[in-house]
Amino acid sequence: MAGVRPRVRVPKEAAKGEVVEIKTLISHQMESGQRRDSKGEIIPRQIINTFTCTFNGDEVFSADWHGAISANPYMQFFMTAEESGTFEFTWKDDDGSVYTETAELTVN
């Protein structure tokens, strides 16, 4: 889907063993498949069905999303920082599109 915009916020730096907060937001209409258009036809479902966050290749958080998730879904979760590395965030769309974003974390 065009015009989808992921946003991610993680701290740039953390102390070893510190719990860091990760926030993500993505613009998406999350069409539930329950609504009808002005002609009475069902508008086909189109949602982001999977969200994954990995750190240096290891999965730290993932979620399966269903029809009742709001538009522009927001996710907030935590991770214990043990080493420096790269977060990779992935959102998978019903239409096969994949939206990705990365962020760096330096552990002192």
Partner: peptide
């Protein structure tokens, strides 16, 4: 401002 989804429109 990060959580506020209105900022998706601001950025647009």
């Amino acid at each position: 401002d990060f959580i506020n989804p209105g900022f998706l429109w601001v950025e647009n």
